[in-house]
């Protein structure tokens, strides 16, 4: 089981993502945005950070990086992809996930431990949770407000595409408290909070985040 972690110019959390992948029992493969080579990995993580300084729109320029064409092609064939924070923004900009992430409603950067409810425990990245389970992981963003047109939100909800929702307070004004969504096939997941920062007691508020990474390992072994 080999999981690639893509580094873009301005990625910050790629090293933590690599570590989370390893703690989940998989081999981590560092990938570079400018290559056209996924090195035969079984799944890909797009990490958090500020790729290209959030110029134009957060994630917009990274979504057009050479390696993203390969990620989009492989994702459409069913390869699991997880986008965290800036990685979520990249997946929305690349058209793999619905909606968009915009400036927080209160205009402040928010950095805190955040409670979430798992709404879908049947995606490639959330198998190891239970539906309705409450987890706590860090959230840290300035442009994390999930938005879409009301009709699109109704469709996203109707199709059961919401994977995680904020509980005990919405940190950024995301519509309908949406913290993360998935693709139609449940293989691509994006979320603003940071499960990779909650994988070890020493450094995280919990180890609740590790389940995202063990889930994909379990899913791939079962496949």
């Amino acid at each position: 089981m080999r999981i690639g972690v893509i580094t873009f110019p301005g990625s910050l959390d790629d090293v933590d993502a690599v570590r989370a992948v390893r703690l989940a029992g998989a081999e981590s493969v560092p990938l570079w945005h400018a290559e056209h080579d996924l090195e035969g990995v079984d799944a890909v993580v797009l990490p958090g950070g500020f790729s290209y300084g959030d110029y134009l729109r957060a994630g917009a320029i990274a979504a057009r990086a050479p390696i993203m064409q390969d990620v989009v092609d492989r994702a459409r064939q069913g390869m699991p992809v997880l986008g965290i924070c800036n990685g979520f923004q990249v997946l929305c900009e690349a058209g793999l996930l619905p909606g968009a992430l915009t400036r927080n409603g209160h205009l402040h950067f928010r950095n805190r431990d955040q409670a979430l409810r798992i709404e879908r425990a049947d995606t490639a990245w959330t198998h190891d949770y239970a539906t309705g389970q409450r987890i706590v992981v860090p959230v840290k963003n300035g442009e994390g407000r999930y938005v879409a047109a009301p009709a699109d939100l109704d469709r996203i909800e109707g199709e059961g595409r919401v994977v995680v929702r904020y509980v005990d307070g919405n940190p950024n004004g995301s519509m309908r408290d949406i913290a993360g969504v998935t693709s139609e096939d449940g293989r691509v997941v994006g979320l603003m909070p940071h499960p990779e920062h909650a994988v070890e007691d020493l450094t995280g508020p919990s180890t609740d985040g590790l389940g995202f990474f063990t889930s994909v390992v379990t899913a791939m072994v079962a496949a």
Binding site: R103, N104, L107, A149
Partner: peptide
């Protein structure tokens, strides 16, 4: 510009 139905907190500030 943002679509009319998307709120614009920067404009509001």
């Amino acid at each position: 510009v943002l679509k009319p139905e998307i709120s614009d907190p920067q404009g509001q500030a």
